[in-house]
Design a protein around this nucleic acid. Sequence first.
RNA 1: GCCUGUGUGGUGGAAUUGGUAGACGCGUUGGACUCAAAAUCCAAUGGUAGCAAUACCGUAUCGGUUCAAGUCCGAUCACAGGCACCA
Length: 943
Amino acid sequence: MINFNEIERKWQKYWEDKEVFKAVNNSDKPKYYYLVEFPYPSGAGLHVGHVRSYTALDALARKKRMMGYNVLYPMGWDAFGAPAEQYAIKNHIHPKEAVSENIKTFKGQVKALGLSIDWSREFSTTDPEYYKWTQWQFLKFFEHGMAYKAKKNINWCPKCKTGLSNEDSSGGICERCGSKVEQKEKEQWMLRMSDYAEDLITGLDDTNFIDRIKTAQINWIGKSTGAEVDFEIKGIDDVLTIYTTRPDTLYGVTFMVVAPEHPMIEKHQDMIKNMNEINDYKTKAKNKTEFERTQVNKEKTGVCIDGLTAINPITNAEIPIYISDYVMMNYGTGAIMAVPAHDERDFEFATKFNIPIIPVIEQITGEKHDNEKIKNSIVAVLYDEKTDKYLTINWKELGGRLFVGGTRKDNESPIDCAIREIKEETGYVNIEYVHDIFPINHHYYAYNKNQAFEIESIGLLFKLVDDKKESTNLDVDEENKFTVEWVDKSVIEKEVKDELHITTFNNLLKPQAYTGDGKMINSGVLNGLTNKKESIAKMIEYLKEQGYGKEKTNYKLQDWIFSRQRFWGEPIPLVYCEDCGWVPVKEEDLPVLLPDVANYEPTENGESPLAAITDWVNTTCPHCGKKAKRETDTMPNWAGSSWYWLRYMDAHNDKEFVSQEALKYWGKLDFYNGGMEHATRHLLYARFWNQFLYNIGLVPNKEPFDTRVSHGMILGDGGVKMSKSLGNVINPDDMIKLYGADALRCYEMFIGDYEKEVSWSEKGLNGCKRFIDRVIRIGDKVSKKDNYSNNLEKIINKTIKKVTEDYDNMKFNTVVSSLMILLNEYEKQTEISKEDYRVLLVLLNPIAPHITEELNEQYDLGSPICESSWPTYDESKLVDDEKDIAVQVNGKVRATIKISMDDTEEEIKEKALKAENVINHTNGKEIVKVIVIKGKIVNIVVK
RNA sequence: GCCUGUGUGGUGGAAUUGGUAGACGCGUUGGACUCAAAAUCCAAUGGUAGCAAUACCGUAUCGGUUCAAGUCCGAUCACAGGCACCA
């Protein structure tokens, strides 16, 4: 019996001693750079999820090496940040020690997997030799004006006592500890990431990220185009500038809204008569967290500013201004023009505050025709509360079920028209007007009149007061052609087919803003246009001409809050001098080391724990030499991971962050794997950082990563998340002890589609263990013969092709199943050749490297696999000369026939028609045609 | 609400990209070996009917395109992830 743990140690030592996986800078071989996001060495140890991605990339790396590449597959540790600090506080040890302990366990676990990592390039972000260069690069940002300090209303975690970026506090919950995030005003270092918004979008074209990552990034950056428009304020020489994506609706503006923090309020407070009320509102808004403020379903609130009135630049209408927290100060200009007819939020606000609503876009229904006649009309819905029914007119074949409709006479108001039509057609006279809706632009063709019409239709809702009826007043030709019927809503939904009528009905029951495309009305120069794009362009042109506004693009992406009030992070290498301001620490004085002290717990007042260490804080100004103080904020966790892939290229350089030579040789990171949860944060920060380095000439590529893939999560048995509290966490160490590293690796590759989440099953792992055992046992059948056995040659060549392609497409699960199929075939043989055995071992080696090396050595099959090349297949050996194909009759499989590859189409057809069960199904029927797809299928169509 | 995905046996998942649905593994059942168990090996395994040949049904639901649909198109439902008062 083979002791697999012993074999694992043996080969791991062999690889290490011989340095087989060491990547060489400047080799003649083509280079390839694989990377998995480096782990955060938490106290919990390695997760089986880590095993999945590490093994997958290890398999790719091993195969690539065998294909003749100089492969870089490094590993390191992302060890700054709150968890390590929390752990240290809890266990009363210095984070430095906690981290080095965790790294030790983590590394041991990773090594037990037998990964082909070049350990000579290992580092931790917490190494002073590394964070020296993180600090150095921060100073580059500072030197180029890309870092600035700003007073910011920041997301503040009361438990972690630190500021959080928007990315770290999504949903109003602290990413680390789950506490509710508050708002706090603090001075923070910021990086001008929003300057790079456009480049971060366009740069994606130079990457091979999978689409869902690209779209996630694009959505996060949130580009929108529109216009900024200046609204004069009545009686003062000042304008209110707003941002809108819909300048085409400018004629429909009925109010303005500014964010509670908008500076114009303070600026013009002496004009404002209800300042108390406004201040009250401002205070309330401030106390709400960002999360509460952005709860979508919350009812709108606001206060009208009494004393300030805006003037619509194109209509000169006077417009009230409100403050409301549904407008954010940090996006656009912090002020909007509100068009309630065509914006859902504005509609809700206007409805609540009784503000007029002016439609400027008509929804279009029906189909346009040539030579349309224009008329105005109404559609009237009459509702009876007592029976919960609606009045309809059933025109039967002549037009189906409709509501009361009619043409408006000259100078007749829609209401009058509707009342008249209802009486004329149905006789009801005691009805009460409820409301009407925006006009609809409808097109139809009247066959009885042989005429096309374009109508502007207004929908009106009435309530029936009582059943009193007067005689109807119908044209002779209308009589007896329809019946008046009261029906339920459900009948209407099923039977009213006319687009105008059903749209009218739906809009009447649920009045809402119309945000779609349509025909411009009430809009001066834009009237009649039906294309949104065109209307917007025309309006922007007009605004520019008149000097009222300009085109403008906005992004949701904000600048990066780069300060953390924590101990365990890279100190920001700046010194504040009363005379010189913020001064960078001199390059030769880097790194600014974290002091070795006992107290690193967060302070109550929100300052970094470093602020309490006076020895450390007090220093001299690098510029003038006077007394000065160090910056006590540290960098966020994301800093160290924003350039680490570059460091692996030249991991121990003490002169530069990485040499230009190494940068040039390794170029882009070819293949980067990481969790989907980093698609918008780490990946954007890293790309931003790299683009900046590129722009100042420090790296050769603007985009750092070529391909980016994401592995799916591994869930516990039954599809629930693995968690300590559920007690379903699987420890890879235990699995290795019980089943061996190769079986564990094999199972995690076999478990399912690499990109999808899967659930863990120990039975499945045992199945892979059985597979490995069978690979070992098949060794008993190895003969002295070389070369592939004749009867295995074909399947071997096919398997090489399939497995090679599947590795390249990361379809590891079918790599394993193909090899299982090959093994099943071997087991049917009485003996197999050395070469048969060797090829199986080599193909399996990237996934199960230890046992395959061992068996290769034991049976003396050739040089160690890690030093061999990848097998090739012979195209000519792939084709079958005979094949079973299916014969269908009318699309249903009725028989299979054996065909030879040189059979002509005629011969195949003949065989197919002669097949027994085919005759049963074609007998007595007319054969319409026979479709022969060579080598695949025959389909006989009969009648 | 918006944007991505996903939906196939008891189960994890395959399916040459429109061509025999369920490969391979797990589980289950039966058998062999064993005093017995474990391990191993052999056989069966989508559902219904039938001794069987075979027939019908079957890839979330409904409809469409096609000689042929898990695959393409349209609508709906469910789940997962991301974004969310971004004007």
